[in-house]
Amino acid sequence: MVAPLQHIIAVAGLLFSIGVLGVLFRRNAIIVFMSIEIMLNAVNLAFVAFSRYHGNIDGQVFVFFSMTLAAAEVAVGLAIMVALFRNLKTTDISKISSLKY
């Protein structure tokens, strides 16, 4: 293996944490969305690393499905964003809070 498993998983963990920070702190919906993509990719990386570690192809198949899902999610998500922007003239999620108590 190209590097110890622990290192690869650590990279995946850091990547995921970066995504979390983006989701929690950014207000631009598009960037929040990108952060989610980063988190997804962190998980994919962990999958691939474990797949290599165990010599088992199933992990990579899972990544394949995860990518399919990401593609669908991005398409729908961005469509929602377009619709949202069209109606509210903003992508700032701290200003979108009409669904509250």
Binding site: M1, V2, I8, I30, F33, M34, E37, N41, N44, V48, A49, S51, R52, Q60, V63, F64, M67, A70, A71, V74, A75, L78
Partner: peptide, 22 residues
């Protein structure tokens, strides 16, 4: 990590299609 197919998919789907969409 010797995941060649996934690597290619990553370039095609993520770096290509999804990012263009963004």
């Amino acid at each position: 990590l010797e995941a060649y197919f996934i690597g290619i998919l990553q370039v095609l789907v993520y770096a290509g299609a999804i990012m263009v969409l963004f």
